[in-house]
C-alpha cells in the first residue's frame, strides 16, 4: 500500500449554524489494549441525512461506528477517549446511562442477527422489556416497522413464524425493523448489505432512502457504489484516521485528497 501523508486531510465542518447536527465526535480515540485503532477522529453528522463511512478493511471505519453507541464497552481491553456529543451531552462519559443511550442510537450489524424467536417477538421483545405492554400498541408497532423495513407484505400472515426461517435479506430487514421499533434518533449500520445478494441489497437501499425522512443514518460500507447511491455525506477512513469528509457527490467526483482519489478510483482496498 502506498504511504500517504496523513496530515493531508480535508474534513468538512458542519457546525456552522446552517446544518442541524445530530451526532458529533471530537478527537475520538479507540484502543484495544496497547494498540490504538482510531487516532482522534472528529466528525459532525447532519440530522436526517445518510452519512457513509468508507475505507479499506482495517481502516477503522467499523471500530469508529461501534464506538458511537459504545458497543465496544463490552469488549474487555477496549478504551475509548474523546467526546461523542449527542443532544449537548457527551455520551462517552460515565454519567451517561449506556442502556438509555442505546435506545436513542440504534444499530444494525453486518451479520443479520435475529433472535431465535418469532418475527413478532423479535420486534416487540425489547419494547416489552422497556415497559410497553399494550397489545394494540405492539401490534401497530410490528406493522409499521415491518412496512418501513419493506418486509410486511412477505411476512404479514406468518408473524408467529421463527425469524430464523427467513432468508438472509429478510432477516436483515427484520433487524432494521427491530431497531426502528425503539424509535431511535440515529441508526448505525455496519456493512448491512455485505452478506446479501444484489436484489436484497437494492431493496435494503430503498428502505434506507425512505428511512432518511425520520432518521439520521450512519452506514459503514465497503461498496463504493452503494455509498454513492444512498449517502449524502461520505467520510473516507484510512489506517484509523478520517482523511476526507465531504458531500458524497464531491468525494466521488472531485476528491481533495490523493488517498481518497486512489481509493474511490479503485487503486487500493
Amino acid at each position: 500500500m502506498e504511504k500517504y501523508d496523513r496530515s493531508d486531510r480535508y474534513l468538512k465542518q458542519l457546525d456552522d449554524g446552517q446544518h442541524e447536527i445530530a451526532l458529533a465526535t471530537k478527537d475520538l480515540h479507540v484502543s484495544y489494549g496497547e494498540k490504538e485503532a482510531i487516532h482522534g477522529v472528529s466528525l459532525d453528522f447532519e440530522r436526517f441525512k445518510i452519512t457513509a463511512l468508507i475505507g479499506a478493511s482495517g481502516s477503522g471505519k467499523s471500530t469508529y461506528l461501534r464506538s458511537l453507541n459504545r458497543m465496544n464497552d463490552n469488549i474487555s481491553g477496549t478504551k475509548v477517549t474523546g467526546q461523542i456529543m449527542y443532544r449537548g451531552l457527551d455520551v462517552n462519559s460515565n454519567q451517561i446511562d449506556v442502556y438509555e443511550m442505546r435506545k436513542h442510537i440504534g444499530m444494525v450489524f453486518q451479520q443479520p442477527n435475529p433472535f431465535a424467536k418469532s418475527i413478532y417477538d423479535n420486534i416487540t421483545f425489547a419494547p416489552k422489556r422497556h415497559g410497553e405492554h399494550h397489545k394494540k400498541v405492539l401490534d401497530e408497532m410490528v406493522e409499521t416497522t415491518l412496512k418501513q423495513a419493506g418486509l410486511w407484505d412477505q411476512v404479514k400472515d406468518d408473524l408467529k413464524q421463527s425469524a430464523l426461517a427467513l432468508s438472509g435479506g429478510q432477516q436483515q430487514r427484520l433487524c432494521i425493523a427491530r431497531a426502528i421499533a425503539m424509535k431511535p434518533d440515529i441508526l448505525l449500520l455496519d456493512e448491512p448489505a455485505s452478506v446479501l445478494d444484489p436484489i436484497s441489497t437494492a431493496t435494503l437501499e430503498d428502505t434506507l432512502l425512505q428511512l432518511k425522512e425520520n432518521y439520521t443514518i450512519i452506514i459503514v460500507t465497503h461498496n463504493m457504489q452503494q455509498a454513492a447511491r444512498v449517502s449524502d455525506y461520505t467520510a473516507f477512513f484510512h489506517l484509523g484516521d478520517a482523511l476526507e469528509y465531504d458531500e458524497t457527490r464531491k468525494i466521488f467526483t472531485r476528491p481533495k485528497i490523493k488517498a481518497t482519489e486512489d481509493y474511490v478510483s479503485g487503486h487500493f482496498g
Partner: peptide, 9 residues
C-alpha cells in the same frame, strides 16, 4: 445474538 440485545438498550 448478544450484540443484538445490547444495541436495543
Amino acid at each position: 445474538q448478544r450484540e443484538a440485545g445490547y444495541a436495543l438498550g
